Each structure stands twice: as C-alpha cells, then as structure tokens.
Amino acid sequence: MILPLASADLLPKVIMGVDPGTQIMGYAVIEVQGQRVTVLRYDVIDMKKLGTNHALKLKKIFERMTELIEEFLPDELAIEAPFFGVNVQSMLKLGRAQGVAIAACLSRQIPYVEYAPTKVKQSVTGSGNATKEQVAHMLRQTLQLPPIEEAPKFLDATDALAVALCHHYQKGNNVKAGGKSWGKFLADNPSKLAAPVAGKKVAVAKKKPAA
C-alpha cells in the first residue's frame, strides 16, 4: 500500500507496534520503505487461559515478544503508554506488562518510544477521541486490511497496528535506548543468531548486514 508520505530514507525499516494488556496484548509488525508501508503481521497474545496468575502472563509476554523479535528483526519498537484509570492495581499490572515488552526489546538492543493513546488516535484518524472501531475503520481503508467480520481479533490487533503507524508518521523521532537494531546487533554478533525454527517465516534474508 502506498501512503502519501515523503521519506528521505529509502532503506527498509521494520517497526513493531504493541498495545499492552494483561488479558489480551495486541502486536503488529510493519515494514516501511520510502512511502510504502507493508503489514507483515498483526495479531494478539491471548493470556485469558492463564487466569489470575500475573507472573505467568508476564513470562508469556516476554517469551512471545522474543519469538517475534527473532522472526521479524524489528528496527524499532513503538508502544502505547498506559492510560490513567481509577483502578490502581490494574494500572500497576498494565505497567508491568508494558515494561516486560520493552525489556524484551532492550535485551536485543532495539530502541523504543512510547505514545499516549490520544496521540496514536490523532495520528491515525485525526481525532484524539476516536473509538477503537473508528481507528480500525481508518486503518482498514488506509492499509487495505480485511473487513472486521473477517478478523475476530481485529480491534485488539489494530490498536497495535495504529501504534506502529503512528511511529512511522512521526518518522521515528525520540527513540530511546540508542539507535541499534536487532538486525545490526546480529550483524555485529553473528554467534548470537540461533538456527531458524522449522515452519516459521524468518525475515533474516530481508535485512542486509551493515558494511
């Protein structure tokens, strides 16, 4: 899909977007090259079956994030900042989930940036008060995604996709924790690259080692 954005950097960049959650965590991976945005995957990490064991949920988030990092080799992480609510315990748990997702990326030298929910909605729809459905509708139009009736997990996953696209619109400004990517880390440390898991789509071939 060609978006109406100018970009001086024609090298491909892979951005991972995450919408933190303690029951359902949305994630999305996009590849940006010039004005072209390609959705590589958008889905969720479902933790409902883990019940009330918060430690197991955090473990699952870290493990799944690590798998996604190894599969897609993102250059940057864009993650939604927790919103302020009336339930302090829920806020604390959500903050831990966000922190674990960030830690998984930092362990692979991937820089990250946080975006407020209103900033994400504003970037994608033009309104900071847009609903989840409105965000999903705009993304479906912009990126030619399947209709909502064809994607049961659409709203959770598209929230994460909106975060990734918001980061693209911001042109990667204010990334934290340095500028190294997981792909650059592997190029500098080839011994850290594990054998690909059978049946998985591995994006290694799409990334070229730095000269």
Rank of each mutant, 00 (worst) to 15 (best):
A210H: 06
L73Q: 06
T52W: 10
G17S: 08
P117S: 05
P117R: 02
N189Y: 07
A198Y: 10
S90Q: 12
Q170L: 11
K180R: 11
S90P: 01
V202L: 14
V113A: 13
A130H: 05
M91P: 00
D43M: 11
S191N: 04
Q134I: 09
L193A: 14
L58T: 02
A203R: 11
H168K: 10
V39P: 01
D156N: 13
A162Q: 02
A210M: 07
A151S: 14
S191T: 06
A151W: 05
I15N: 01
D43S: 15
A205C: 06
H167S: 13
K180F: 06
K132L: 10
V120P: 05
M47R: 08
A81G: 00
A160R: 02
G26C: 11
F185I: 00
G178P: 02
W182L: 10
K13R: 13
F83Q: 06
S90K: 08
F72T: 03
T125D: 06
F185E: 05
G51K: 14
V163S: 08
A194H: 09
G21E: 00
A6G: 15
M91Y: 00
G99W: 03
F62Y: 12
S107R: 08
P4W: 13
G95V: 03
N174C: 04
V124R: 02
K207W: 10
I148K: 15
A104T: 01
Y27K: 04
R96S: 07
A187P: 00
Q33P: 06
K48Y: 07
P117G: 04
N53Y: 12
H54K: 07
K153P: 04
V29W: 01
E63A: 15
K121R: 14
A81K: 11
L106V: 04
D159M: 05
K171I: 03
Q35R: 14
G199I: 07
K49S: 15
E70D: 13
L10Y: 07
A162V: 03
Y27Q: 04
G128A: 10
K93Q: 10
P20T: 00
L10K: 11
K60Q: 15
S107A: 14
L40S: 07
